[in-house]
């Protein structure tokens, strides 16, 4: 296999497409991976299966921007790295479990609970 043939340089009949070669789609652009605020992270656990996030999936975390209610976020809580849904109650932000197996956890840097990044995209590798 010669990886350099891209639909252009044919040997017999000249390819009518030789000026129109665009190459395969680059998903790292779609996922904006060169952006300094984007960090891929690996999912462990399945409490967010109902939202289509499975064990082993790759999330593209984005550390820019501000918190939004309903967003999935990656948070640091007393030494643990958690994936949770962000909710606002009154003036406070809360981390909510994906299947209600854990009680909501208030975001409060003073108590060592803080948001690390938003979740921007989900990627599943081929099985």
């Amino acid at each position: 296999m010669n990886a350099r043939y891209a639909g252009d340089r044919t040997t017999g009949f000249a390819s009518p497409a030789s000026d129109s070669v665009e190459g395969p789609i680059d998903l790292s652009q779609t996922l904006d991976l060169a952006n300094p605020s984007r960090y891929p992270v690996r999912v462990r656990g399945a409490t967010f299966a109902a939202r289509g996030i499975l064990d082993g999936d790759i999330l593209i975390a984005d550390t820019a921007g501000s918190p939004q209610a309903g967003q999935l976020v990656i948070a640091w809580a007393s030494g643990r790295v958690l994936l949770a849904e962000l909710q606002k109650r009154g003036n406070a932000w809360w981390l909510v479990s994906g299947d209600n197996t854990h009680p909501p956890l208030e975001v409060d840097p003073a108590r060592d609970v803080e948001i690390w990044a938003n979740v921007a995209s989900v990627v599943r590798e081929k099985a």
């Binding site: 960090y39 992270v41 690996r42 958690l82």
Partner: peptide, 15 residues
């Protein structure tokens, strides 16, 4: 190598 190797990225636990 958290940011340059897919096998070594940070793990997050579903809450």
């Amino acid at each position: 190598r958290y940011t340059t190797r897919l096998k070594e990225i940070m793990e997050v636990n579903c809450y």
